[in-house]
Design a protein around this nucleic acid. Structure first.
Length: 273
DNA sequence: CCTTATGCCTGAATGC
DNA sequence: TGCATTCAGGCATAAG
């Protein structure tokens, strides 16, 4: 599931192919995959525009288009953005196909949760989902002080706060579990119960695990692929996610699995307090 | 305001 | 083997 490191990897692998390219035509195989703006059609908005650059905010990928338009993409669970140098027939779950002046860009999504949204650049940060996003964890705005302030007096489990994109942008189930393990913090602890030392440790763990995820080009636990269709390698370095019942890499005791806020949570009962 | 539940989706894994 | 059920989970929205 593309979280910050996966979206960043898609951004990097895609940018080298599509920056400066012009969208010549759009083919919609499942129209619900795209969201348009006002009365304008998605295809008429983006057709003929050049992709000037690719940005990212949290788990959102931002295509800067010529003429003041932005294409906001969110992969959700199983979305893929795949670049092909030569013409390629749409695959089974390909919902949108962009024909470029050089090559093609396919949006493919088995689960159909992902969306491509066309919005004027001047207003894209006002989209409800983007407007409320918390700090970028790998930028200087994300300090232990800011993190501490955002956790505030929250009664909910610390993991729920980490998954809340308004607290910090970009964490999903994999990296939240990993960061909590690295910081030796139990996921069910109320946010306000963490002392300063623990908040510092968790802040450091978030930054560390996201950087490591990017360095490994993401986690291909299952569906994730970059823009070239390549898998990431971070699944080989996971400490807890997907490892319930297997021995803790630190203490050897079997990792346990539970449900927290409707999500599977894996943790070490000995290492995480 | 807050917390919890539901809907969106398909395919892999599991149960009988 | 085949069929039904469960699970995976980000996020918007509804309900309590």
């Amino acid at each position: 599931m593309p979280e910050l490191p996966e979206v960043e990897t898609i951004r990097r692998t895609l940018a080298e192919h599509v920056s400066g390219r012009t969208i010549k035509a759009v083919e919609l195989y499942w129209p619900d995959a795209v969201v348009s703006w006002g009365n304008l059609g998605f295809t008429e908005i983006v057709s003929g525009r050049m992709i000037e650059g690719l940005g990212r905010r949290g788990k959102y990928l931002l295509f800067g288009l010529s003429g003041g338009w932005t294409l906001v993409a969110h992969m959700r669970m199983t979305g893929r953005l795949l670049y092909y140098k030569q013409a390629e027939l749409p695959a089974k779950h390909t919902h949108v196909l962009f024909r470029l002046d050089q090559g093609e860009l396919h949006f493919n999504d088995v689960r159909k949760f992902g969306r491509l949204v066309a919005v004027p650049t001047s207003e894209h940060l006002l989209l409800p989902s983007l407007a409320k996003l918390g700090p970028e964890p790998l930028e200087s705005v994300f300090t232990p002080e800011v993190f501490s302030q955002r956790l505030g007096t929250q009664k909910r489990p610390i993991k729920s706060a980490l998954l809340d994109q308004e607290v910090v942008a970009g964490l999903g189930n994999i990296y939240a579990d990993e960061a909590l393990f690295l910081a030796h913090v139990n996921p069910w602890r109320p946010g306000h119960s963490l002392n300063e030392r623990e908040i510092q440790a968790l802040h450091g763990a978030i930054v560390k695990v996201l950087r490591a995820g990017i360095a490994a080009q993401g986690t291909s636990f299952r569906d994730y692929r970059d823009a070239n269709g390549e898998k990431g390698a971070f699944q080989e370095q996971l400490y807890v996610y997907g490892r319930a019942g297997k021995p803790c890499r630190d203490c050897g005791r079997p990792l346990e699995k539970g449900r927290l806020g409707g999500r599977t949570t894996v943790f070490c009962p000995r290492c995480q307090h």
